[in-house]
Simulated assay, not measured.
Amino acid sequence: MEHIAPLIQTVLWVGLIAGIVWRFHSPIYGLLVALQKRIEDGSSVKAGPFEISDQIKPQDPIAQKEKAAGEVQEVLQGQDLQVELGQALSPVATESGRAAVMQSRYFQAEDLVLRSLQAEYGVPVNRQVTAGRDGGFDGLFLANGRTNVVEVKYFAGRGRSPAVRMSVQRLTAAIREYGWENTQIILALVFENAEDVKSVREMLSSAFSGNDVPVVLRVFTMDQLREQFGVANDTAS
C-alpha cells in the first residue's frame, strides 16, 4: 500500500493539471497568441520591474544624416582643421573637404564612445534611435533599472564649443514629454587635445547639477578611445 500511495498522488496531480488545461484551454491559448503578437509587433512587454518600450525605434537614415550634419557644422565653426587635427589640407582646401575630415572624426568619436559605454556597463547600447517626437538619441540603454540616454559631443580643439547646453535642454524636454521616469542623460565629451579637457570639465561639471533630468558627465580623449579598442590614428604626417 505504501508503494501505491505515491503513484495515486502522481496520477491525481496529472489529472488536476490536465483538467485545468482542458477547462481553461481557450483563455490560455488566447493569452499565448496575444503575447506572441505583442512581441512580434514590438509592443511593450514587462519582465518584473522592467519594460521594453514600444516607443523606441531606429532613427530614419535621413534624420540621422541631418543630425550628423548639424553636429559637424557645430564643430567646424571657429576651428582650424590644419592646426587642430594635423591634417595635410592645403590652404585652399574646399569647405566640403574640411567637412569630410570632420565628419569622419565625428563618426569615429561617436562609435568609440558607444563601444566604451557598452563595455563599461556590460549591456547592449541601442544606437541612433528615436521615440518619435525628438531629434534622435545617439545611444540608449537600460542598466541597473535606469534608462540611460547618451549624447556625444566632439571637440576638435580650441574655438567655439559645440552647443552642449542646447542639446541637454532638447533631451530633457523629450524625456519629460515622454514621461520617462528613472532616466539620466550621459553627456559624453570627446576631445582631440588632452590639454583642453581640464578647462571644459571644470566649466561643465556643475553646469547641469540642477537639471530636471540628471546629467552624468563623461570625458574622453580620442587617443584614449583609440588605445582602448586598438584603432590606429589616421592623422597624416
Rank of each mutant, 00 (worst) to 15 (best):
residue 212 D to Y: 07
residue 149 V to L: 06
residue 172 T to K: 00
residue 219 V to I: 09
residue 83 V to Q: 11
residue 217 L to V: 01
residue 98 R to C: 07
residue 20 I to R: 08
residue 25 H to Q: 13
residue 222 M to H: 04
residue 84 E to C: 10
residue 50 F to M: 14
residue 143 A to I: 03
residue 16 L to K: 12
residue 45 V to K: 07
residue 76 L to E: 02
residue 20 I to P: 01
residue 75 V to F: 05
residue 146 R to G: 07
residue 132 G to C: 06
residue 55 Q to N: 14
residue 132 G to Q: 06
residue 216 V to C: 08
residue 2 E to C: 12
residue 71 E to K: 14
residue 58 P to S: 09
residue 149 V to H: 00
residue 224 Q to M: 09
residue 35 L to H: 12
residue 156 A to F: 06
residue 129 V to L: 02
residue 161 S to A: 15
residue 62 I to F: 12
residue 209 S to M: 12
residue 97 G to M: 00
residue 15 G to S: 02
residue 160 R to T: 13
residue 158 R to A: 11
residue 128 Q to N: 13
residue 143 A to S: 11
residue 112 L to M: 01
residue 26 S to C: 12
residue 5 A to C: 13
residue 78 G to W: 00
residue 51 E to T: 15
residue 17 I to T: 11
residue 171 L to I: 08
residue 174 A to N: 09
residue 40 E to S: 15
residue 69 A to R: 12
residue 103 Q to D: 10
residue 204 L to E: 03
residue 39 I to K: 13
residue 84 E to P: 02
residue 222 M to V: 04
residue 22 W to V: 14
residue 39 I to P: 03
residue 90 S to Q: 00
residue 23 R to Y: 12
residue 138 D to P: 02
residue 14 V to Q: 10
residue 17 I to V: 13
residue 69 A to P: 01
residue 35 L to D: 07
